[in-house]
Design a protein around this nucleic acid. Structure first.
Length: 283
DNA sequence: TCATCACCTGGAGA
DNA sequence: ATCTCCAGGTGAT
């Protein structure tokens, strides 16, 4: 493998808020990506997949050099890139990503992780790989047919009904990830937002982390703080108050204009930077 | 169109 | 001990 840029930093990438179902055991990271189990080693660097995953988890097909150069036009982003050059965007299993971020609403990282682990335990398939045995993420069919009681037992709370409906939408073909991957950003966002439990922020996360939409720029509490703190002069209508539906769209188009077509990468570096600055815990 | 408010759950701080 | 508040938001009114 030709080394053209800074190597991937697994720890930083896993702990950047994109994924939840990961654990560090000894020196390696074990994770669940849909029906696939992954084992990552930092040095020597290796990625082992239980099912020969053809989708590239670390997006090696991206022209990283070009992207980092492009987003580094902005000085704050440039600093964030310099601080965590090994951070990468991840290409996740779309269904898992979709359910994960529906579960993320008004919750904390630890709590989200716990909900998703419960779902795997109750509805996933046990699989052995490299001496480990763990449950994969549930299939859409399983969650679509799950009883509310079982979902509630997974501590999903008010999200239980959204998860079931979302899984049913996949089963009925209302949501088709393969087509969404090919569709443009706007179409993808609109399709996702038809599902209850998915608003702008969650839709952007799903689009960015699993559907190859690099122009997605999820605006959550943290991103909003970042915009307020460092970019007030560029985005003057940002306040502490929640971003309303209409404002979100307007703000996003301004963001795209300012940060460029790889805004999703910018967001990831900025998000990581600010979370670390506030010493927030991850997985 | 916009502002409030409730919402499961668990952990932190008063 | 008990209460309050908040956590990577969203839907209903």
């Amino acid at each position: 493998m030709q080394k053209t840029f800074t190597a991937i930093n697994i720890e930083i990438t896993i702990n950047s808020g994109q994924v939840f179902l990961w654990n560090k055991i000894k020196d390696q990271w074990i994770g669940i990506d849909g029906q696939d189990l992954l084992i990552l080693n930092q040095s020597p660097f290796s990625v082992k997949s239980s099912s020969n995953n053809i989708d590239n988890f670390f997006r090696a097909d991206d022209n990283l050099k070009k992207i980092l150069l492009d987003i580094s036009r902005d000085k704050i982003v440039a600093g964030a890139v310099k601080q965590s050059p090994g951070l990468r965007l991840i290409r996740q299993d779309p269904f898992q990503c979709y359910i994960s971020f529906i579960c993320s609403s008004n919750s904390s990282i630890q709590n989200i992780k716990s909900m998703l682990e419960n779902l795997c335990k109750k509805f996933g398939t046990r699989k052995r790989f490299e001496g480990y045995e763990l449950a994969t993420f549930p299939k859409s069919e399983t969650l679509a047919n799950a009883s509310m009681r079982d979902l509630i037992e997974c501590k999903l709370g008010f999200r239980a009904k959204y998860v079931k409906e979302a899984a049913q939408a996949v089963e009925s073909g209302k949501i088709d990830f393969a087509s969404l991957k090919k569709a443009d950003y706007h179409t993808t966002l609109e399709s996702l937002k038809k599902i209850r439990g998915i608003g702008n922020k969650v839709a952007d996360c799903i689009a960015l982390f699993s559907l190859d939409k690099m122009e997605a720029f999820p605006i959550d509490r943290w991103t909003q703080r970042i915009l307020l703190k460092y970019y007030k002069k560029f985005f003057d209508n940002v306040t502490e108050k929640p971003v309303t539906e209409k404002k979100y769209e307007k703000l996003h188009s301004e963001i795209l204009e300012y940060f460029g077509p790889y805004a999703g990468y910018s967001q990831q570096f900025l998000f990581k930077m600010e979370r670390d600055l506030n010493k927030k815990n991850w997985l």
